[in-house]
Design a protein around this nucleic acid. Structure first.
Lengths: 230, 230
DNA sequence: AGCCTTATAATTGTCAACACTTTTGGGGAT
DNA sequence: ATCCCCAAAAGTGTTGACAATTATAAGGCT
C-alpha cells in the first residue's frame, strides 16, 4: 500500500505522500464517489499545510479521479454508467493493442513464466503475499511505457473503485481463467491478431459484467449524497 | 490560442491562465525540449506568485510535458526516438479504435459533411480561419469522451511539439489526403474493421515519417543543452 | 407558505516568507 | 594537476496569513 504508516524519513515530497493517502481514502470508501474533498479538513487530518493537499488534489484531478472547477469544491468522481462503458472501451483499445505487442515481443521464457504463474494462481496460491495480475503482466510485456503508464496508472485507479462491485462473483473467476489461458496460448503461438482479438473480447465481457452489477442512479449529485469529508 | 493576451477579467484561475501561457511558450520554442522550467523566473515574468506557476507546472507534469523529480529542476521533456515511437503506437491503438467507433456510430449526415470538408480542404481553402483537422473530426465522432480527451488533450500537446518537424513536406500532403479519403469511404460504408485497419496504417506511416525526420541524439541531457528559461 | 434579496460563514485562490535540498564554485590535501 | 570536502548560492518544498468566490442561512416581501 502507499505507505499509509507515514514513516516520514524518505526523500519523498509531502505532496506525494498525501497523494497516496487520499488515494487510500478513496479505495477504503472513506471518500465515496460524490463526496466533497475538503482541503482544510484533510490538511488538519494529515497535520500538514494546505499546500501539499492542493498538489495532491490537483494530481487526482489530473487523472480524473476528482472533479475540477475553479472555485467549486472538488468531489470524488461518481462515474455514470456511460462513463464506465467508455472507460472499458478505452481499456479494450489499449489493452488489446498491448496484447498484440506482447504477442510479438514477449520473450519466450517470460511467456512460459506467465502461463506457469497463471496456472499456479488458479489452483490456489502463489508464494505468500504475491498477488497475480494477468492483465498487468501482459500490459507490461508490451514494452510500450506510455501505454503501460496509462493502463497501470490512470485507468487502473479509476477501475479499482468499481472493481469491488464485481469482485466477489466466484463463477466469474473460472471464466476469467479460461479466457486468460486462451490469451496466453495465442501469445505463445505468436498470433498477434488473435491475441488482440481475444483480449478485446475478454475486456468487453468484463465491462458488460461490471455494468450489470452497477446500480441504477450513477452520477448527477442532486440526491441525498451530500456528505462531507472529515 | 490560449488567450495569450492576458486580458484578465474572466473567472479563470491564475493557474489556468499560466498553464496556457507556458504551453504557448513551449509551442513557440521559447521553452525548447530539455530546457529547465524555473518557477521563480516564470513568476517574475508573468507578474504572479510562485503558487499559480507551481500548479501550472504540475499540470504540465501530469500530462508528461515536463519532467518531474522531487527537488530536481523541472525540464521540458525531450522525447527520445523510442518515446516518439511509443507515442505513435498509442495513437495507433486509440485512434484506430476511435475510427472503428466512428464507423458504426457516426450519423450519415456528419459523414457526408466530413467528406465534403475533406475535399474542400484539399483544393485550397475552407471558410476563412477554419482549419481542417481530419483526425480530430474522426476522433470526436467516436463519441467516447475519455478517448477524445486523451487524444485531443494529452497526446495532442506532445505530438504538436514534433509536428513542426515534419510539417512542411508537401509531397506528404497528397498521400495523407488519399489515405484520409480511403478512411472516410470505409466509414461511410460502415466497415468498422476496415476503417480501423486503415487508420492504424495511416498513423503508423505518419509515425515512421516523423521518425525519419527527427534528428539523431534526442534525449539524455548530457550535452551542451544547458540553457535556462528566462 | 413560497420566493427573492441580503448578510454571514465556509472554502478555495493567491501571496510572501521560511525550511530543506541540490547545485555550483573555491580551497586544501594527496 | 586531480580529487575530495566544504561553504555559498540557487531552486524547490512548505507554511500561515490574506483576498476572492461560492455556499448557507436568515429576513423581508408578495
Amino acid at each position: 500500500m502507499h505507505e499509509s504508516g507515514n514513516g516520514g524519513r524518505r526523500s519523498e515530497t509531502l505532496g506525494d505522500e498525501v497523494f497516496g493517502h487520499i488515494l487510500d481514502l478513496i479505495y477504503n470508501c472513506e471518500l465515496e464517489p460524490g463526496m466533497v474533498v475538503n482541503e482544510s479538513a484533510l490538511a488538519g487530518r494529515f497535520g500538514v499545510s494546505r499546500g501539499p493537499i492542493r498538489e495532491a488534489i490537483r494530481r487526482l484531478q489530473g487523472i480524473q479521479l476528482v472533479s475540477r472547477e475553479p472555485f467549486m469544491r472538488a468531489r470524488v468522481v461518481s462515474l455514470s454508467k456511460q462513463a464506465i462503458a467508455e472507460l472499458f472501451q478505452m481499456r479494450e483499445a489499449l489493452e488489446g493493442y498491448a496484447c498484440r505487442l506482447a504477442a510479438t515481443q514477449m520473450p519466450a521464457a517470460d511467456i512460459d513464466g506467465l502461463i506457469a504463474d497463471l496456472e499456479a494462481a488458479r489452483g490456489g496460491l502463489l508464494p505468500s503475499g504475491e498477488r497475480f495480475d494477468f492483465h498487468e503482466r501482459v500490459v507490461r510485456a508490451s514494452g510500450n511505457s506510455r501505454i503501460i503508464d496509462t493502463l497501470c496508472g490512470d485507468l487502473y485507479h479509476l477501475l479499482r473503485i468499481y472493481r469491488r462491485i464485481s469482485g466477489a462473483v466466484p463463477e466469474r473467476h473460472e471464466l476469467a481463467f479460461t479466457e486468460h489461458w486462451q490469451i496466453s496460448r495465442a501469445i505463445k503461438a505468436r498470433d498477434a491478431t488473435l491475441a488482440e482479438s481475444l483480449m478485446r473480447s475478454h475486456v468487453e465481457r468484463a465491462g458488460r459484467h461490471v455494468l450489470e452489477q452497477v446500480p441504477e442512479a450513477p452520477a448527477a449529485g442532486a440526491d441525498g449524497e451530500e456528505k462531507k469529508a472529515s
